[in-house]
Design a protein around this nucleic acid. Sequence first.
DNA 1: CATGAATGAGAGTTCATTCAT
DNA 2: GATGAATGAACTCTCATTCAT
Lengths: 194, 194, 194, 194
Amino acid sequence: MSEKSAQKKKYIVETARKVFREKGYKQVTMKDIVDACGISRGGLYLYFQNTGEVFEEVLRLEQEEADDVFEQNIPKEATPADILALFLKEQKRELLSRECSLNKATYEYFFENQVSSKENLLKRQFEAAVHVIEKLIQEGTAEGEFYCEDPRGAARNIMYVLEGLKIASQTREIPEAAVDREILYVMQGLFLEE
Amino acid sequence: MSEKSAQKKKYIVETARKVFREKGYKQVTMKDIVDACGISRGGLYLYFQNTGEVFEEVLRLEQEEADDVFEQNIPKEATPADILALFLKEQKRELLSRECSLNKATYEYFFENQVSSKENLLKRQFEAAVHVIEKLIQEGTAEGEFYCEDPRGAARNIMYVLEGLKIASQTREIPEAAVDREILYVMQGLFLEE
Amino acid sequence: MSEKSAQKKKYIVETARKVFREKGYKQVTMKDIVDACGISRGGLYLYFQNTGEVFEEVLRLEQEEADDVFEQNIPKEATPADILALFLKEQKRELLSRECSLNKATYEYFFENQVSSKENLLKRQFEAAVHVIEKLIQEGTAEGEFYCEDPRGAARNIMYVLEGLKIASQTREIPEAAVDREILYVMQGLFLEE
Amino acid sequence: MSEKSAQKKKYIVETARKVFREKGYKQVTMKDIVDACGISRGGLYLYFQNTGEVFEEVLRLEQEEADDVFEQNIPKEATPADILALFLKEQKRELLSRECSLNKATYEYFFENQVSSKENLLKRQFEAAVHVIEKLIQEGTAEGEFYCEDPRGAARNIMYVLEGLKIASQTREIPEAAVDREILYVMQGLFLEE
DNA sequence: CATGAATGAGAGTTCATTCAT
DNA sequence: GATGAATGAACTCTCATTCAT
């Protein structure tokens, strides 16, 4: 029953996601997942050999959903600056939602699993985001909304700042104002740079 | 003999440091430290109750040494830009030395130990660094070496980029060139801003 | 399979009982029970979290059996004096069987676990016995077999003497004759009191 | 320095006594005693090889003091009944002072150390007390204060009741009134028995 | 005599993983 | 497929006991 199997697998992944959000990655045991899912120990092993495999699936799911959500929220008449602002706002929301984001778990997972360059999800996501932002800056510059001589450099700078904010928010208390300040700073760099 | 005790404690901390560098924080057990030190199980418990206590001591040691090293390396006739470059170079070295830096262990430790704002070492270090960089930028601007309208904002931006680079280098392979590129980007922002 | 589980739990309890009889309560470790049962360390923890939980179950089992045994042994045509004598004889047997009674373990358990008044098994057992003896004395007095002005006081006196004998037999060698003598003494108090 | 040695030994015993009162016997470790005494680990081992040896000394000390105290408190003109009442009152005080009596520790000690009949302190104390009470009852009977046909039996009965009360008070909550009731009951047996 | 650092055996506990049903 | 009892390795932590100083 491949159909039923796939559904059960999906159910496990979705349930496990909640667990990873709450407890991070390393902390989570097979038992935690089993308990959360209300299935049998052996049942879980039928689909996944260890927490790592579960988490990889969670990551995949997470990414799919994230892509969907972002694209749906872009208004049609949005300018590049609007879209960038929207993106940064979304990132801010995400990085401040400490307890219910997968950030910590994700970092923990990649600490332990030094995934080789090509397949590294984190890297791919980062580069995809850089690419999108670069395009936005280019468009914005073309339209006169932004001024920027090195769109790629600026895009990368923005992404590293976001990454810095993300890890900061996971390892120490960081006020919302601090995040706003940093976002404002990088956005201003795109306007003022007169 | 408090003298001998202190020496042994220091020996444990220094040996444990190597272990934490290699394996991170969560991975390390009391047994790992015991084995690395070549002492008895009970012997370790004489000095530390758990890996957390050992690691806190390691962090303290690390910080002391870091402060010493940096200050010693500043040439007398260095300009603010020289010093900032030196600082960034040191940071680059540190963040690229994956296997033998404490970064991963430190992040793992603070994932688990949500230290309250005031005493959070990471936060204190971050803010201290921001302060130093801000001063350098102010001096550099006064001396005409830099041009910067928001020294504090620039300093923070630099530090968040560094933090982003740090976590990036721990969770995915990051080429030296990428680090250089980011450092160059932020430095240029201080010069060109014409 | 809850059926199988229940059987295994019972097996553990019955095996552990022997261990507690031999070694008392505090002395017994989880490993002792594991070894005696021939099961795995983890296997025991599946059913009980600590020796205390095992012992509580042992006590429960013990009590059930004790109740059964006593009731079955009362002949139909027995007079109150007969029944009381039977009860005392049973108590005597119990308190003299040092090595194979749970007395020591029970005392040790209640030394450590100051169970609140209401749920205290020892107290409940004591009071139940007092009640039974009181009834017997009342019946015996009504039938002219005994003479007693304070049946409840006499019942309590008997039970405290038994308790004293019990602890005495556990902490020092006590000859059978001494027990007989005490039992005789309290029985005579019920007859002679002319 | 035999003089100094003896003093230190005594100091240890007196300090350890407090520890045993609080924690019982089995619970107490050499470390507990060392800490309470403020001496070195090795220092304790110079005088005692294990907690058992310390406790034996504590018992000896306890007994000496008990004898002294009791004899000093007997008024000159006291009748046998007065003295017996005094003795029972003292026993009552002792057995109700749960937390600060050595009873629990003593029972625990004799659970573990099955001392052979002759040297068993508990037995000797019990028999000494029986003897004293017997004498009192005899005197009291001779003087017409008591009526008792079997002074030895009565004395033993009293002592076993006391023993029963003692263990009861250690293993379950026992109200003062219950003790009074039992004491009254045995005393009345000596008077009324008309 | 006295100290207290050091040892190592052993108790408690958890968890990934297997396997008969 | 699915179950969950069972296993045993591994980890944490404590304590009696020793021994160099």
